[in-house]
Design a protein around this nucleic acid. Sequence first.
DNA 1: AGATTACCATACTGACTTGTCTATATGCAA
DNA 2: TTGCATATAGACAAGTCAGTATGGTAATCT
Lengths: 202, 202
Amino acid sequence: MKTPEQSREKAKSRVRRKLIETASDLFYRHGIENVGINEVIERSGVARMSLYYHFKSKDDLILAVLDDAAEIRLKALAESAGEGKDPGSRLLAAFRSLKGIAEAEGFRGCAFINAATERANPSDPIHGRVARYKSALRETFAALASEAGAAQPDLLSWQLLILWDGAVTEAYIQQRPDLVDAAVSAAETLLRASLPQSGSGR
Amino acid sequence: MKTPEQSREKAKSRVRRKLIETASDLFYRHGIENVGINEVIERSGVARMSLYYHFKSKDDLILAVLDDAAEIRLKALAESAGEGKDPGSRLLAAFRSLKGIAEAEGFRGCAFINAATERANPSDPIHGRVARYKSALRETFAALASEAGAAQPDLLSWQLLILWDGAVTEAYIQQRPDLVDAAVSAAETLLRASLPQSGSGR
DNA sequence: AGATTACCATACTGACTTGTCTATATGCAA
DNA sequence: TTGCATATAGACAAGTCAGTATGGTAATCT
């Protein structure tokens, strides 16, 4: 006996999922604009018209891929932020989870940043998804910073987001996952400096 | 009377320069892969064969554009770092110069990061130029950090580079040049925390 | 003067792109 | 049984792209 939930899930078919997953992988590895629809359907083992049945265009598929990735990434981040007792260490744990990402085989930076870069027009719907994802990321930081008792949680959250993006980007450019460590230690310094009972002394 | 220097400069012809400048502008505004050589030559007012006389391929033109941009940007940075007396304030002045860049009409992030993103393969020659440029940037930071007496100038310089990249990227994604301010204040905090005579007290 | 360098115009090749059209097949629900 | 949703195969249209082939002209150097 199926719940309506499951039926709707079924309605979003294996073929559709397969397309999203294959496209997600290909888009990330080679860049959105460097992957044709032909490649997507071949690797998916799906017919051309099936793609255009589920998605009205390549752009539509890209949006679905981004939405899917946002859900996955934000969920994973929330899990990482579960490790640690006080909010401060949970914040840093979330930050440290970046290392694993950067160390992964085929790491190529942030899929969202990459998407926004490939689409030059800021009014492209893709930009909206990217901005939304990054905002969600920042809000996660802001919540933790606030809990931790940071003096200016909002400012700190933006600084952490900037560190995050910079770390992902530079680790990719220099092909050095260890650069994430520099960002983590910077996050630590910023967090400590932001705490009211003042900064330096150990 | 011309020095050999100038002759060689002449040999690098107005047409060649025009191509580099036009391509630089178009590549930045629309993305490298979204600009065809047809557009480049039309906007340059140059014949197709003239492009292929000076550059053996589109990729070759891209490399020339990146080299040109690196020279310009690093020179501009050195100038910005000239403002201020002590090394610390010169470092921050350099950082603050980012704001003007992010505020410029048509700002679309870092041309080098964008180029590296569009070319998925890390062994692409383009990646080499990007990594080289970013390294030069970092070395500038490292020199200033060292002069300023930072405890770990190397670590600090990487952190500053990460902040730099993150700020440029996020300012573009969110379409908010003011986010650069958050990065500047973070740089300030990191610099202060890195100075030996300790951290917090105002 | 003669050679080389710089430059121009344009037609063309061949590969690749997204998206459409046609035609068919299956399973499920009313 | 009829009809709708899901899926498939493959040809095709219409356009874009990088780069070449051909055949010149104009400036500069030796």
